[in-house]
């Protein structure tokens, strides 16, 4: 049985310790504030200055449209890469022939520098959203394929035997036996993939786009506007944290409840 499916209980995080996460966050802001007071505010604006600037950027500038564009691109790239990567990963994991034929392609895809893929996409398709999203998908998909392939290869054959003995259909076997074994690998692919997608979308926006967070940050850089860069970064971090705590962690807890439930 693969470690991800080990039925031994996993100790849930004690509820009383949730405040530690918030305390750690406040500590980070405190250290930032102390450092800002100690150095020239031109090089490191204080957190309260940056927060006030976020408000101004939201009301008077382009913060909301910029984030909407970037989030849209990231979401489209992420979902496409997850779907494609999952299907290809399953094909590689289930068929030795397909695996032999295409595994090297995945290895190449994993190791091609992101910037090279982006530049090629921009040259071939022009400086547009299609090229940007394709570059994101090409960068992210091999990572998903690798995770899912590994998940399929670690399927427990004993459960397949159970399915055959009880004459489960292909659909039932996938839903009851294979999909649950893939869940930990899908979650890992989603979590690592999300962080990767954020980063590469921003880099590609700097490189070849006239909209989005990356484009705006590159403008701030040209004007040495540290306050703007930090304001966008802070909003970015807030969105990532909200996604983690509102979407991914609850989903993970729900899907892997069988490992942690103490009732």
């Amino acid at each position: 049985m693969s470690p991800a499916l080990d039925p031994r209980p996993v100790a849930p995080r004690p509820k009383g310790e949730a405040w530690l996460g918030w305390a750690s966050f406040l500590l980070m802001i405190g250290l930032w504030g102390a450092a800002a007071l100690a150095v020239n505010s031109r090089f490191l604006p204080a957190p309260w200055t940056v927060i006030a600037h976020i408000s101004w950027l939201t009301n008077e500038a382009h913060l909301l449209p910029d984030f909407a564009v970037t989030l849209g691109r990231a979401a489209l790239g992420f979902v496409t890469a997850m779907v494609l990567g999952t299907l290809i990963g399953i094909a590689l994991g289930r068929s030795r022939l397909v695996d032999r034929l295409f595994l090297n392609w995945v290895v190449v895809g994993m190791n091609l520098p992101a910037i090279v893929i982006a530049i090629l996409c921009f040259i071939w398709l022009g400086l547009n959203d299609k090229a940007l999203i394709l570059a994101v998908v090409l960068n992210k998909t091999p990572l998903v394929i690798t995770n899912i392939r590994q998940g399929v290869l670690s399927f427990d054959p004993a459960f397949d035997e159970l399915a055959r003995a009880y004459r489960l259909s292909r659909g039932q076997t996938f839903r009851l036996i294979h999909a649950p074994q893939l869940v930990p690998y899908l979650l890992t692919a989603a979590r690592t993939g999300l962080s990767l997608v954020w980063k590469i979308v921003l880099v590609f926006e700097v490189l070849g786009s006239d909209s989005g967070v990356g484009f705006r940050v590159s403008l701030f850089f040209q004007f040495f506007d540290l306050k703007g860069i930090l304001a966008y970064t802070l909003v970015f971090v807030a969105i990532v944290m909200v996604l983690e705590h509102v979407a991914i962690s609850p989903l993970e807890r729900r899907l892997l409840k069988w490992r942690t439930d103490q009732t």
Partner: peptide
């Protein structure tokens, strides 16, 4: 017809509740 097969390791699906383990073979 489907036999009643009992495995030496019980072979229960750990991600399904006990009731759902039964329903897995007779939905």
């Amino acid at each position: 017809p489907v036999p009643g097969l009992v495995f030496q390791d019980a072979r229960l699906l750990p991600w399904l509740s006990c009731a759902d383990n039964l329903r897995a073979v007779r939905p």
